[in-house]
Design a protein around this nucleic acid. Sequence first.
DNA 1: CACCGTTGTAACCATTGTAGTTACTTCGAA
DNA 2: TTCGAAGTAACTACAATGGTTACAACGGTG
Lengths: 138, 138
Amino acid sequence: MKQISSRFSIAVHILSLIAVSSKDCTGDYIAGSVNTNPVIIRRIMGMLKKAGLVDIRPGVGGASLLKDRDQITLLDVYRAVEVIEDGQLFNFHDEPNPECPVGRNIEAALRAEMKEAQSAMEQRLAQVNLSQLAAQFV
Amino acid sequence: MKQISSRFSIAVHILSLIAVSSKDCTGDYIAGSVNTNPVIIRRIMGMLKKAGLVDIRPGVGGASLLKDRDQITLLDVYRAVEVIEDGQLFNFHDEPNPECPVGRNIEAALRAEMKEAQSAMEQRLAQVNLSQLAAQFV
DNA sequence: CACCGTTGTAACCATTGTAGTTACTTCGAA
DNA sequence: TTCGAAGTAACTACAATGGTTACAACGGTG
């Protein structure tokens, strides 16, 4: 199956680095810790910036958190990098046959359940913030 | 973002059809209700068969449930068609730098949270069975 | 001002998962 | 034996992903 993109884990890695590190976190430095290409880091940091989670200093370099460590949850990070409409984690097949009672009615029923399941996952992500996560490895 | 495959919604559609319908459900008939190619249906039904959810009669045609309607949950269906290892809904980026304290320790901490989030979603799916779903459109 | 490291992007590529299609074989009852 | 159905292999088109190169824009420092 297609997994949820590693953008999420990389984003959490980036934010953890910024939160923990005292030195200036440049894209290249972060790329070294994540072990990937600096452009990947810049792309993801751009998303985090757009989401209002970090401030990035162009030219001089370096980034800092715009919220307190315990005000940034994994759900915030997830939402910042997994650009996903509304409640669309699950894909629903297109246009079931309206002539069939099942085809006509299953979409509403199943979509509701999908939304609940997605919500359950997201609420679990919302329970953990950067502080709690960082506490496990400082 | 890449969504969870429509195999899941199609599989639920298929099972609902079999559960509700009195007539023989052939692949072509189901394909008509789902509104897709019969081969897609056969592929997914093969997964459902392998998971022990349905019995398919080759040659003569038609399928039937191998469990009671209220013994088949959405999680069972999900597991049958989303061939996903263990608890790997989330992808974790490869080999963070072990030289860095964050890179060295974030994987275990984050993987644990990912697993919890995935589990929360799956437990929600486990709460709904085919009977409950079908009750919404019979 | 010129330099230089950093950020911000655009463009491109290889890989992979998905959905669909055609074509063919195998099955099993009439 | 026939015929409709299941089972599958092979192929295509498309999109997301992760990575790479290249280059422009930024902003302190000498």
